[in-house]
Design a protein around this nucleic acid. Sequence first.
DNA 1: GGAATATTATTCGGTGTTCGAACTAATTCT
DNA 2: AGAATTAGTTCGAACACCGAATAATATTCC
Lengths: 404, 404
Amino acid sequence: MRKIDLNNFHVATNETVRDINSRIMLNLVRKHQPVSRADLARYSGLQRSTVSAITGRLISEHWLRKGAVGDLPRGRKPTFLHLNSDRVGIIGVDIQPVTTTLAVASMDPQLQAQESFSTGNDPVEFIARLSHRILDLIRAYPKRSFEGVGISLPGRIDISSQRVTFAPNLGWSDLDLKTPLKRATRLPVELENVANACALAELWSGRHGEGVRNLLAVTVSDPVGVGVGMIMNGQLIRGSTGVSGEFGHVALVADGPQCRCGNRGCWETLASNAAAVRYYTESVSVHKGDGSKSATARVPFGDILRLAEQGDVKACQALDQMAHYLGIGIAMLVSGLAPDVLVVVGEVTRAWNRVGPIINAAVRHRSFTHAATRILSTNSEAQPRLWGAVALIFQKHFSAPSIA
Amino acid sequence: MRKIDLNNFHVATNETVRDINSRIMLNLVRKHQPVSRADLARYSGLQRSTVSAITGRLISEHWLRKGAVGDLPRGRKPTFLHLNSDRVGIIGVDIQPVTTTLAVASMDPQLQAQESFSTGNDPVEFIARLSHRILDLIRAYPKRSFEGVGISLPGRIDISSQRVTFAPNLGWSDLDLKTPLKRATRLPVELENVANACALAELWSGRHGEGVRNLLAVTVSDPVGVGVGMIMNGQLIRGSTGVSGEFGHVALVADGPQCRCGNRGCWETLASNAAAVRYYTESVSVHKGDGSKSATARVPFGDILRLAEQGDVKACQALDQMAHYLGIGIAMLVSGLAPDVLVVVGEVTRAWNRVGPIINAAVRHRSFTHAATRILSTNSEAQPRLWGAVALIFQKHFSAPSIA
DNA sequence: GGAATATTATTCGGTGTTCGAACTAATTCT
DNA sequence: AGAATTAGTTCGAACACCGAATAATATTCC
């Protein structure tokens, strides 16, 4: 039940029918591959003749390929169809404050190639280097037809201008990343906030099952920042200007720590990596009793994780406190948005054995409405940000077409 | 970009094309009426011949009617088309703790008939009386073809079973309201939580302009309860089980007042009508200095509104405090969801001159991200809950069809 | 070995939708 | 009266899917 947008609608034609059914077919192949056309007809409810016509087109457009011949107890043997992952390419780019990673992916859950370079401070120089790297990658895979470049970054992209309006962790503001990359690569370029991208990646990953259509991704970035990517009714929720998900700037305690946004006690001042660092340094300096908090050297968050693993009490307490506040904010999200799944992304998930139970306890205690929500972590080795970037392009071909 | 739900999809056929374009046409007529077929062709981009075919069908199905002949400086005069509001009927039912109101509406913003009766305590008896009233109303309008019964109520409807699972203000739990009404009226029956229904009503009301596709409705119910209805990307967001929007049970202050949900300091303990009553009684009893809070008679919220209008200082302060907390919660929603419009529904809007500025100030102070959100009130004379009920049926015919 | 059976896949005419050019209708301007 | 202009209709083409018939292929049973 979506209201038709009279400022931006498309009337339907026969091509619309073909487009819808082709996408259904692509999704069915992805789910059931290897799969015969007869089975596709049964899964879809379309006629076998129609399935043959649709898959024929998709094969000639190199989205599908014919595979081995199957085996049945009786009757003509089916030829199996597969996604043609050898011929389709997607470039994913994960921009982070220190390092930018890019990779070639396709339609299956494996990366073909991956490389990193230093992000640096100058956006102009960055764009030049990134373009160069992308072109090199494309040339390295001449057999593939590249469908686009997806980019995830810790910042905000304005929905209409598609400019990066605000990326404090990168030191950028009001930057047009899309146009120069589009011109250099001659490919579609999609930018997205990292939390939104991660939410999309989790939605399409398949690891939560087909029925999950309401999903939140909570990204805990380094050094500071808590963002929320929202999938509701199977689609990304971006708000009116693309700036939705800033639950990190909801004040959870009165007169809390000063936030970079100007307020006090925002969720991200209590639950970000920087918060854990603060908890740790405070407890250490208090213990030393010298009262010189500012003199204490800033400990990287990774060190706290390592210390906690080694059983350091103060590090554990700092993580516990961070987890407690993560739980409070997540309880807010669970109460208000009632997702099937909530995924936590970030370095902090390396301590999920410790952090996860605390978060779950806080949510159970504070949210009476939605016990159905599963709270999970992504491990950072799975590179959720990079897969989020890939998902930006992937979904363009596997999502329902925009009609009406 | 909506992910296709392989558990629940529909393949496209020629009928899909017809359905999509018919709905576009209905919306264009609604927006531009009276309007000629030639103009509809220009607005839609369809061929004039196609427009004639579609409108011809819609006229024969009594959705549209031909009207007067227009006037142009040159050329053949157009025949105007209108929505055929005389022939289409919708029953809207607004269930509230004390009174239930039902009305006949159509496709234009006027109610045809309206009546009320006492809700009572016995759900079985209530269903019988409501069925009877609906059938009487239908019989009173024999020329209309009724499209369905929409019902808004302060409670939760499970998304799959369609049962009322939880309605504390009504004293109901796990009640099947839909099946008996459907059987009695032989019409489609749609149930929805009042906040969701109000959000839909505002979306379709047209008073926020065509571009508004992200809208929140905050309902402040009597005596207690703060609910949020969410429209994102032009569609209702219900969460995985239909229980989304319970931001009323997000804890905003530590160790705050006890909430009926079992927690402390929930938004609704601070910003509901009952909260204002509490602020008022506390300040009065403190002033009396007798310390016997419990002895103070409970003042209805309406009295506080009336006292505040008359300039009573304590009543004004109680409202101000309620407004302050409403603002804090609304700031959370604005930061997190970035809507175009946020509408406040409830008796409290009668004091919007006082309450509105306080809410706006709190949001400006606390939400740095989304200055674009307009915060408005519905006046209760406009009966937002009743129109919400009507919108439940209306949207079934004017929304985009569910494809893929 | 051959016929019956089962299953996959293709072929081909039918239906329904939009497209688009040609046409009719109605009105004003010259 | 005739040209110009605009609204609306007619009708054949293109293109989806449908569905029955047919072809292809393999197994089972006699």
